[in-house]
Amino acid sequence: MPHIDLANDVPGIRSLALFRPDTGKELYRLAQVLLRDDSPLSQADRELIATFVSSKNECAFCTQSHAAAAKYLYHNDASLVDLVLADYQNAPISDKLKSLLTIAEKVQKDARLVSNEDIANARSHGANDRDIHDTVLISATFCMFNRYVDGLATLTPTDAQTYKDMGVRMGELGYNPPSNNG
């Protein structure tokens, strides 16, 4: 049960955006800019970073919803999402993406841990300033979302189909704040 009366019974971040729509609008805008608008990283790879960070923060709602969105966007390679969550160093992804996940993981743990070597490694695999910037900001942003969602103990559905449906919606429509009209 949520820590405060959210006056709705929808799950996760949507319940919070309905509770306070003015801040919710900016949070959804940020997600849309970072995960859907222009970036040298694909939408699927960005959803994967969001999923990975949410998993490290043990935020069940964000992990499952973004995993579903990443699977939708990866189409035939959907299985790699679970492989990355289990062991990204040995997952079938590029060395560049592995090096960016290493940076994302350090940002999640303690951002001061990101070292010159981590950055040099990412650059040696082809990452540029924008790849590195967007990786750090996506990781930092999901450290915010995960804390917001869990810090208020929002509802977390447990059935897989709910997340699968969410993933399709996030993949096709992107991030639009919920409205009280449905």
Partner: peptide, 23 residues
């Protein structure tokens, strides 16, 4: 609302702190 805003401000500053130090 005050509890909500406290949690969101705290979460937002985790974003800022990690953004500033991660780069």
């Amino acid at each position: 609302m005050e509890i909500h805003d406290t949690v969101l401000i705290a979460s937002l500053f985790c974003l800022y702190n990690k953004y500033v130090d991660g780069l």
